[in-house]
Amino acid sequence: MQGAQLRYDHLSKHYGSTIAVRDLSGDIRPGVVTGMLGPNGAGKSTALKCLLGLAAPTSGSALIDGLPYLQVKQPGRRIGTVLETRGFHPGVTGRQNLLVLAAAIDVDDSRVNEVLAQVELTEAADRRIKGYSLGMRQRLSLAAGLLGDPETLVLDEPANGLDPHAIVWLRTLLRSLAAEGRTVLVSSHQLAEMENTVDDVFIMDKGYLRAAGSMTEVCAGRTLEQAFLAITEGGRL
C-alpha cells in the first residue's frame, strides 16, 4: 500500500487577531510515522484541521497528493482520522456510531466488526457511548479512523486517555501501518511517548514551525525532550 504525500505550503491560519499557524511548510512522506509535536496551543490541531478541510487556510495551502482535501476522491476511505474534536453521539452505541460512518464512507457493514475487534472493543460495542471511559472512546475513535482501511492516517493526540498497555498497542499499530507503506501523521504533546513512535518530526511552538526533519537530525544525540526544550528555548520564544 502506498500512502499519500502530505504537504504544507506556507500555510497560515488566523482566527481574528489570533494567529494559530504561521507560514507552515513541510512534507510528510509515506512509509514513516511523522510526529507533529508541540505544547498545547502550538497550532498542531489547527494545522491538521486545515489539512482535513475542516478549517479554511487564511493563506497558503495544505495538500494531500497535491490536492486539497475537498478534491480528494473518497477522502473518508483514503484518509483515516482520529481527532480530539471528533465526537460520537452519546445516546447511540459504539457499533451504531461506526455503522453511521460506514454508510457515510461507503464501506461494507462487516468492516465495523473487524475494526471493533482490532481495537479490542467488541464486548462494549453494543453499549451506549455515554457509558464509555475516555480510553474506550479513544479506541472507538481509532476504530473510526481505521474503518475505511485508509492509506493515510491523521491522528490528533491519539494516546490521550489510553492506559500504558493501550499506548504500547497504539505504538505497535502505528509502526505496523507505516511499515505497510501508509502515511501516518500524529500530533502530540507527549514527547517521551512520541520519541519511541515517530521517525520524522515537526516541532511547533506558538504557531511557528521551529524544526523539521528525521528524529536523528532534529535530536542530534539528545533526547527528544532535550531537543524540544533547546529548540523552543524552554518555551521562552
Binding site: G53, Y69, V72, R86, G87, F88, L101, A104
Partner: peptide, 18 residues
C-alpha cells in the same frame, strides 16, 4: 444541531467534505 452538540459534524464533514 446534534451534529454540533456532540461534535459529530467533524466526522460527517470528513466523510463528505462537500
Amino acid at each position: 444541531t446534534t451534529e454540533f452538540r456532540h461534535s459529530t459534524a467533524v466526522a460527517t464533514y470528513l466523510a463528505q467534505p462537500h
